[in-house]
Write a protein that binds this DNA or RNA. Sequence first.
DNA 1: GTCTATATGGGGATAGAC
DNA 2: GTCTATCCCCATATAGAC
Lengths: 209, 209
Amino acid sequence: MENTRERILDVAERLFAEQGFSGTSLRQITGSADANLAAVNYHFGSKEQLIAEVFSRRFEPINALRLRLLDVLEADERPPTVEEIVEVFLDPPLRACLDPERGESLLHISQMIGHAMSRPDSTVRDVLLEQFEEIIQRFTQALGRQLDHLPPDQLLWRFVFMIGAMAHTMSISPELKILSKGLCDPADTEELVGAMVPFVAAGFRAPAP
Amino acid sequence: MENTRERILDVAERLFAEQGFSGTSLRQITGSADANLAAVNYHFGSKEQLIAEVFSRRFEPINALRLRLLDVLEADERPPTVEEIVEVFLDPPLRACLDPERGESLLHISQMIGHAMSRPDSTVRDVLLEQFEEIIQRFTQALGRQLDHLPPDQLLWRFVFMIGAMAHTMSISPELKILSKGLCDPADTEELVGAMVPFVAAGFRAPAP
DNA sequence: GTCTATATGGGGATAGAC
DNA sequence: GTCTATCCCCATATAGAC
């Protein structure tokens, strides 16, 4: 079947997230995907290129959506608020976590970024950096226009803090409901976005130190 | 020599951070540490227990310091501000990054938390959870007293966001100076703490959604 | 496109001498 | 406490039949 490729990607995504890259073998992947061991090398060339493909398959639509939403915001005559920009940045990845079509896929992916960034190999890093370069550029510019009192280094720091809050929340979200004894449920996207946007926006608006 | 144990811990810390746990072999570790392969099992029992020891060696002093500083804050008649509590939480780990005695060690450790949390095995998770249970308890209570208008779930969310901002900043800090073209230098602890505390404190103070 | 079989190398752990 | 040698298992990748 032609969709062996997709089945491998689905399974790889889940296993990489749960066990890391070096912790997951091609045997495990092809075993769970009802595919042959040799299929990975046939379809992707190598394990490293499979990893890269797992990432770009998920991030391309998310990042495209972020840019479209930012375009809409900026097309308006009224300048966008910090809250609106932050929401356009945070909402697509967080919401994708709950989309029944995509299931848990994005949670898996975000758990993997940490693994990917600390790889010695270069393929995955390059894919990720390319994937996010335009995003970072566009969103820091948009925020900078609304926060023109803020020194450029502070703007960048705060952008890093925002990404950290988002990435960490996604990465621990499977455990968070239990750890918080039910108080925080990351599966409730509305609530999660509703909690994160005011926190981050207030952080951006804080007076420079 | 007796300090073979320490040399193994030092090398393991660096290699685990750079390559992940499954990506680092005991052969690599003992090779770089001028120790024998069998020394790991002699001193630690297994690779898994070595990982756990690498963590607790670094976090025990940090968390003890956090609790002492919080005790000092709370001993005062004047109730502590949100900024003071946040600083007591963030400063010890961030400052430890720059301590010349410890060198880069804590950067390594923080890069590893992501790896550790997504392990299938249980030893490391248990060590980490035990290590942080009291910290989370004490700091959420202290913050909650100063933010008594804030619903408990919002307080917890924001605590998660703070940890995310901190952990992510530490984990990408080796690349941040280059990525930001020199604007942000995480090696300057004063500046880093000075940027993070106002951001996080403003986030905590934001009106509940 | 899919399979079997295999080449080639590295992994963690341990037994037992020193 | 340290070393060598070894057990046994698993990894990625590929060759070649179907």
